[in-house]
Design a protein around this nucleic acid. Structure first.
Lengths: 123, 123
DNA sequence: AGTAGTACCCACTTTGAAGTAAGGTACTGA
DNA sequence: TCAGTACCTTACTTCAAAGTGGGTACTACT
């Protein structure tokens, strides 16, 4: 009847792929990692994650909220105040991507050395 | 003199960002995860990672090779035989992204439930 | 009165990531 | 001899991701 018994990221149509793409998206990673430290307001987050446009931040947050990773708390005050935080599910995801982000930060020199070596031999 | 003392993914120009984008790219994640199990030949990998075009697979592998994550072993035989495997650095990265991929596979139902709830309240 | 901050949404345009198709070489099997 | 496998590369095209600039509604500061 149905083909989705066991989700497999290696299968082309598998729903796990789009979820994975949400959490590994350009801004998704950075937003999740930021929210792991503490909750943020919209423009706080925008300042923290250097380079995001308002549109992309809103879009990213919506995708993460819909997937159940992010909790959006909009207080009906003026000026508008919206707090974003992680759900328990989002916290798990954020731990994984933040781990990756931190690892990458540490390995920047190694990668740059590898690139230099690669570019050197390929001339 | 230089601005890159401590890599920070939250800074817009930081080199860590492009590395992160390589390992979290659409096909980068899947390739790394696949190579964690065992080494693969090009077309094996192409069959394993359902949906990749030859072009994207070649491109992805090149980026990962240049960054020092993937080792390319091209034997000068006919027909050509090229084996791809992980470097120690790549293995660390692969463990992290594969962990993420596996986690996502397990959480598919949770995410789908969250989406249903979200879409339900937003009508 | 004018300007800035807040948290967006919408329309438009641009960029770049990815898909499609074809070519190239040297072989093997039908 | 023609198809098929292997591992790509190049050119062309498409389409979604992302950037740009506008508007909203209200307040607080100067």
């Amino acid at each position: 009847m149905t083909q989705t018994l066991m989700p497999d990221v290696n299968r082309a149509g598998c729903p796990s792929r789009v979820i994975l793409e949400h959490v590994t998206s350009r801004w998704g990673v950075l937003v999740l990692a930021a929210l792991l430290e503490r909750s943020y307001r919209f423009s706080e987050l925008r300042r923290h994650v250097d380079g995001v446009s308002e549109k992309m931040l809103a879009q990213t947050l919506q995708a993460l909220e819909r997937d159940g990773f992010v909790l959006r708390d909009a207080q009906p005050v003026i000026p508008p105040r919206v707090d974003y935080s992680l759900t328990p599910l989002g916290e798990e995801a954020a731990n994984l991507v933040a781990g990756l982000a931190r690892w990458v930060e540490h390995k920047v020199p190694d990668v740059q050395a590898a690139r230099a070596a690669y570019d050197g031999t390929k001339v």
